[in-house]
Simulated assay, not measured.
Amino acid sequence: MAKKRSALPAACALGLLALLPFAAGVYYAYDGYSLNARTALRWLLPYLATIVAFIGGVQWGRMLSAGRASGLDMTLAVVPAIVAWGALLTAAPWRAVLLIVALLAAWLIDEHGARRGWQSRGFLQLRRLLTLIVTLCVAAIAWRVTGG
């Protein structure tokens, strides 16, 4: 029987690749024209909402594959995606704030998942790093939009 290989290296590579639009957004926001920051947020925030929904799907998959899918945990995994969807229906600046709240809530659910046994520690460390970088990028762009 073949030894099971960890998916963590691929997850790390893909997670870093997923950061490219955020890095590009920060660059675009600070390239000299403040109007570009609004444009960067306009195309990054729907991407962030998509990421939050994707994280919920990953959480469900991990719960189900670990055989530890309580109704409460599955419900918690859906809440950030619903918040993210609602955020897309709001006006600035609440859209960015709510999307960051949804991202941070999804991360906290992953932290909860590590305690419940359906989230691995290695994946959790990756999530912490990606969440921090995305939050900082969106905050930097939002700061530029507000004239900072």
Rank of each mutant, 00 (worst) to 15 (best):
G56T: 06
A40E: 03
T39Y: 12
S34Y: 00
G57V: 13
A105L: 14
L88V: 06
Q59D: 11
R127Q: 08
S120F: 09
W60Y: 11
L126D: 00
L72F: 11
S34T: 10
Q125F: 03
A84D: 06
H112V: 02
V52R: 07
R115N: 08
A53N: 05
L124W: 05
R115W: 09
T90V: 12
A37L: 02
G56A: 11
R127L: 07
P93V: 02
L108C: 04
P46H: 08
V83N: 03
A87C: 11
L99I: 05
G57T: 09
V78F: 10
T131A: 14
R62V: 01
W107H: 13
L89P: 00
D31P: 00
R42L: 09
D31R: 04
L132I: 14
M74Q: 07
F123V: 01
V83Y: 02
Y47Q: 04
P46M: 09
D110G: 11
L35A: 15
V79F: 05
S70V: 00
T39A: 11
V58T: 15
G32L: 01
S120R: 12
R115I: 01
E111V: 15
S120W: 05
L129P: 00
G71P: 02
Q119M: 15
R95I: 00
V83I: 15
V101A: 14
A53H: 03
A37H: 01
V97P: 01
T75S: 12
R95A: 04
S120E: 14
A81T: 08
W118A: 10
L108G: 02
E111C: 12
D73T: 06
M74V: 13
I100H: 01
E111I: 06
L103A: 06
L45C: 07
G56F: 04
G117T: 08
T50E: 04
A114G: 13
A84I: 04
R115P: 00
V79N: 01
A105G: 06
V58D: 07
F123H: 15
A66D: 03
W60C: 06
A37Y: 00
R68L: 14
R127K: 14
A77F: 02
A53V: 08
P80H: 09
L64Y: 12
A66V: 01
A106R: 08
R62H: 13
W85E: 03
N36S: 12
Q125A: 12
L41E: 12
V101I: 15
A40Y: 02
R95E: 12
L45I: 07
L89E: 14
L35E: 15
V97Y: 04
R121C: 02
I55R: 10
L108W: 07
S65D: 13
T75Y: 05
